[in-house]
Amino acid sequence: QVNQQQLQQLMDMGFTREHAMEALLNTSTMEQATEYLLTHP
């Protein structure tokens, strides 16, 4: 289960819902999730 607010923040940054969910499931903080998305295009 992912934090919906964090998911929305990542989608607002331009990431897809699927990619943002993957990042949130594989990390524990927003900072890590953002870094994950930038390093796993």
Rank of each mutant, 00 (worst) to 15 (best):
Q32L: 07
G14Q: 06
N26R: 08
R17K: 12
L10S: 01
T27D: 03
M11G: 04
S28H: 14
Q32V: 03
L10Y: 04
R17Y: 02
L38S: 15
A23L: 00
Q9Y: 08
H40G: 11
A33L: 01
R17F: 02
A23R: 01
L25V: 12
M13N: 12
R17W: 02
S28P: 12
T16D: 06
S28Q: 11
Q5E: 13
E31S: 09
Q4L: 10
A33G: 03
Y36D: 05
E31A: 06
L38E: 15
M30L: 10
P41T: 11
A33D: 02
M13V: 02
T34G: 12
L7I: 14
L7V: 11
T39V: 05
L10A: 05
M13D: 03
T27Q: 04
N3W: 01
Q8N: 14
M11P: 00
M21F: 04
T34N: 13
N26Y: 04
Q4H: 08
V2C: 00
M13W: 03
M30Q: 12
E18V: 09
L38N: 15
M30C: 11
T27R: 07
Q8I: 04
T34D: 06
L38D: 14
N26Q: 11
T29M: 04
F15K: 05
T16A: 13
Q6V: 07
N3V: 00
H19D: 12
M13I: 05
N3A: 01
Q9V: 04
A20Q: 00
M11V: 12
L25K: 14
E35Q: 13
E22H: 12
S28Y: 05
T34M: 03
T27M: 05
V2K: 13
T39S: 12
G14D: 12
L25Y: 09
T29V: 03
N3F: 03
F15L: 04
Q32A: 12
T39D: 08
T16R: 08
L24R: 03
T16P: 08
F15G: 10
T16S: 12
A20F: 00
T34C: 04
L24N: 02
E31N: 09
M11I: 12
P41D: 00
V2I: 11
L37Y: 05
T39H: 11
S28F: 03
Q4R: 05
E18Q: 12
Q6S: 08
G14E: 10
L10K: 01
Q32C: 05
F15A: 15
Q8G: 09
T29P: 01
Q4S: 09
Q1L: 01
G14Y: 00
H40R: 14
Q5H: 09
T29W: 00
V2D: 12
N3Y: 04
T27V: 06
D12P: 00
A33W: 00
Q8H: 10
N3S: 05
T34Q: 15
H40E: 14
A23E: 02
T27S: 10
Q9G: 08
L37A: 14
H40W: 10
Q32H: 08
H40I: 02
H40S: 13
M30G: 08
M11N: 04
D12K: 15
M11K: 12
T16W: 01
D12Q: 14
A23G: 06
M21N: 07
A33P: 03
T16L: 08
L10N: 01
L10E: 03
Y36R: 13
T39F: 02
Q5T: 13
T39C: 09
N26I: 03
Q32T: 08
L38I: 08
Y36P: 01
L7D: 04
T34L: 04
E35T: 10
Q1F: 04
V2H: 07
L7T: 11
R17Q: 05
M11E: 14
P41I: 15
E31L: 05
A20D: 00
S28G: 12
Y36F: 13
M21H: 13
E18I: 03
E35C: 04
L37T: 07
E22S: 11
T39Y: 03
G14M: 01
E22N: 09
N26D: 07
L24T: 06
M30I: 09
Q32F: 03
T16E: 13
E18G: 11
N3L: 04
N3K: 05
L10V: 08
L24E: 03
Y36I: 05
P41Q: 15
Q6A: 13
T16Y: 06
M11W: 02
E22F: 05
T27P: 01
Q1W: 05
E22C: 04
H40L: 14
